[in-house]
Amino acid sequence: MPENVSEHGGAASPADDSIWHWRCKVNGQIIERDLPASTTLLHALRDHCSLTGTKGACEEGECGSCTVLLDGAPVNSCLVLAAQTQDCQVTTIEAMASGRKLHILQDKFLAAGAAQCGYCTPGLIMAAAALLKQHPDPTPDEFLQGMEGNICRCTGYKAISEAIRQAAQEWPTPPEVP
């Protein structure tokens, strides 16, 4: 190659992913799909189950937009392989409301104006649900430790905190254990 010429690309296509038969209880229903083994839970939910309420934003665990409950605990679905959730229970935003009846967190988010662009909202609601399940009346420290994994770019957090606090006031105590 002559000097001061750079050449890029020409990569051979990568080896095909092996296929994984994914079986998982999503929002109470058993779902079975054949997926490339390297599919994340986020993409399994969105691209293979059309459950697009769970949002991807940074896809490296920094923003919490893709938060779902895995066996009741909040996780970033972008950092979990679908295969790792084999025979587990996954709960997404789609399971929070029941028909026209909103979950109390959804109702408070709506009333407080906590959803603006709304993109972080599903992840925040899932994280908040996990927080309130663990700490029905969170102290400021517990609140921050529970919510610090979720980023909102447009509200400045005030309305979100307000919504979660209002929901906490009406949260059943003691919490029901699933």
Partner: peptide, 20 residues
Amino acid sequence: TTPAPPPVTDKPLIEPSPTP
């Protein structure tokens, strides 16, 4: 295309309330 989710039991369900 979304399967209808069953009710989740560990949470209170309420109708939307009026604005605060």
